[in-house]
């Protein structure tokens, strides 16, 4: 019962007569846990995000956020607990300036003005955007807009933040700053994080990974366990990181790596222990 959010046998379709977008999906996310959900386009991963804060409702099954069952009556409370950052930086920027945008969510939740000011300050500082108070969105880069979106969500002090392909439309620099920001948030605040992505390098930061395929949970495990499924992942259209690919070849040539390396450093260290002891 300690799970923060729980999906119980969820079935969902967008329209009657269509195929199920989600088929019997069950999983849970703990307090302060970072879960990555991956899958190629159309695997149902974004649908999950929208179900989590009541933007959509399942036809079958039950979603629970702490002690709340997500339904029409509870959505406003659920949305206080579950914040969401979307893919398109432009289409979620409501305010005419940075500070207005962060204020928007706070205004919606009826936070008094004095408290708003401190919350805006803190959350903009948390994403390193404190120098951009009065900037207009069209003068910001995509990455900066996404950081403002994160600040807007953090200001409301949610217990879970969902990143629904929040880096997909950014350049590498923007992507890197967003991933840094997420890690920073994770270290400094008491929040669970769900990142929905098809960038496998982003997955390595998560505690746990849920791999979606054709509307079903296809695999669940640590990043290391997921990357061990190298060949299977490629079959369902997901690319594994370079390090995983190299490790596979090395192993096939008789170099036995003890644990599955998930980044360059780990691979180098593995090789080091193997070849410097001799």
């Amino acid at each position: 019962m300690s799970s923060f959010i729980e999906f119980k046998h969820i079935h969902f379709k967008y329209q009657q007569g269509e195929d199920w977008a989600l088929k019997d999906v069950s999983f849970h996310i703990e307090d302060n846990e970072w879960v990555a959900i991956i899958g190629h386009n159309g695997s149902g991963k974004s649908t999950i995000a929208k179900l989590m804060n009541g933007l959509l409702f399942p036809q079958e099954g039950e979603i629970r956020v702490q002690d709340l069952v997500v339904n029409e009556e509870t959505i406003w409370d659920v949305r206080k607990k579950v914040g969401m950052v979307f893919q398109n930086p432009d289409n979620q920027f409501v305010g005419t300036t940075v500070v207005d945008d962060v204020a928007f969510g706070l205004e919606n939740h009826g936070i008094p003005r004095e408290e708003m000011i401190t919350r805006i300050d803190n959350s903009l500082r948390a994403v390193n955007m404190e120098d951009y108070y009065n900037h207009e969105p069209h003068r910001l880069s995509g990455g900066q807009k996404q950081r403002v979106a994160i600040a807007s969500v953090l200001a409301v002090a949610p217990e879970l933040v969902i990143f629904d392909e929040a880096t997909a439309m950014l350049d590498p620099k923007g992507r890197a700053t967003i991933m840094e920001t997420v890690q920073q948030v994770r270290e400094t605040k008491n929040v669970s994080i769900v990142t929905i992505t098809h960038d496998l390098n982003e997955v390595t930061f998560a505690d746990r990974v849920i791999v979606m395929n054709e509307g079903k949970v296809w695999f669940e495990g640590t990043p290391r366990e997921v990357f061990k499924q190298h060949e299977e992942l490629q079959k369902i259209g997901l690319d594994t990181p370079f390090v995983t690919q190299v490790s596979r070849v090395l192993e096939s040539k008789g170099i036995n790596l003890v644990k599955e390396p998930i980044n360059h450093k780990e691979l180098m260290d593995e090789l080091w222990t193997l070849y410097s002891i001799k």
Partner: peptide, 27 residues
């Protein structure tokens, strides 16, 4: 239209529920 749809969803996700009970930042 696509923008409007996504924006509406983003506003909803951030708790927008009409003018009732809202506070105001700009003064």
């Amino acid at each position: 239209f696509k923008r409007a749809e996504e924006l509406a969803m983003a506003m909803e996700a951030r708790g927008y529920n009409g003018g009732e009970g809202r506070t105001k930042f700009r003064e």
